[in-house]
Nucleic acid binder design. Structure first.
Lengths: 155, 155
DNA sequence: CACATTTAGTTGACATGTCAATCTTCTCCC
DNA sequence: GGGAGAAGATTGACATGTCAACTAAATGTG
């Protein structure tokens, strides 16, 4: 039961900045999407993933794997999106357990109209503020942090 | 109606890594806290903030400001935490509208027992994987991104 | 003092995510 | 073929967050 090494001044500062960032960025992104496209970030992610798989229909489980989401999360969101008319689900022909996901016409219209604003948001908030070298460095740092957590089965 | 500049290969890669990170890190932290302390990250944040303000009682609104949370979020969480016996709320003596927040004995016990494991988690996942120079660089990058978003009223 | 406005905080409706349980369909292997 | 168990997906209960509407106390102004 040894005392842990508490955070020093600079560490505490970084931790604070980090925590605010982890909350603030997704929130800013959500707001942008809701405002410009009437859509949540989750819905955008699904529409984008399914549209990229087109013209193949995407299996629900593949979607979960691509997005690294839990199956049930995908399932709940797909149900809501189907109710809104953004996507269509039909039993997979090859596997009776599977669900094939496709975009409806409204889904296509929605993603196509939302994409430019969203890409602009991503550019303005993530890429424009950083030089090319900084962008690369940032990716490296994120990867280091993540892989350390993965190694410890914490991710 | 000009086409936006779509993301190139490296940019798309970084964006993907970034999105997974934004989801994955908080999730890993939640899991650690739930597992080791039976507590959500939100509850931990509240207990930590209130304990740091001690022995002064913290006003609900100050707590919201400190954590940069919405008032209603604080209010909902405090209600649940009060029901669990982690905190106590009483009307502020100086302002009839205000609520003074204090930790209960159980709240103190909980935060004291949870803190070491949580600090260890933070060290292992954020600080240990990065050199001192990288830590500083990381903070700078986060600040750049955030301040660009703030400047555009996107945060 | 009285009334309009601001400020602190709560509440309710709803969207979203998690976990555990469940249901179906496939796959294996005898 | 038939039954055990794995795999795909859904469901329900619950925790959490958002927004908008609300209550109540403080403040400010004539």
């Amino acid at each position: 039961m040894s005392e842990p090494r508490w955070l020093n001044e600079e560490e505490a500062q970084l931790w604070l900045e980090f925590r605010e960032f982890l909350w603030g960025f997704p929130r800013a992104m959500d707001r942008q999407l809701i405002r410009d496209a009437g859509m949540s970030a989750g819905e955008y992610a699904v529409l984008a993933a399914v549209s990229e798989a087109a013209p193949e229909a995407l299996r629900s489980g593949d979607l979960a794997a691509t997005l690294q989401w839990e199956r049930s999360r995908v399932s709940h969101l797909l149900r809501r999106m189907e109710a809104k008319g953004l996507i269509e689900r039909c039993a997979s022909s090859s596997d009776g357990r599977g669900q094939d996901i496709k975009l409806s016409d409204a889904g296509w219209k929605t993603i196509r109209s939302a994409a430019p604003d969203h890409v602009s948001f991503v550019r303005e908030t993530l890429f424009d503020p950083l030089s090319a070298a900084e962008q690369e460095k940032f990716g490296v740092l994120l990867a280091k942090i993540r892989s350390a957590a993965v190694d410890r089965n914490l991710w």
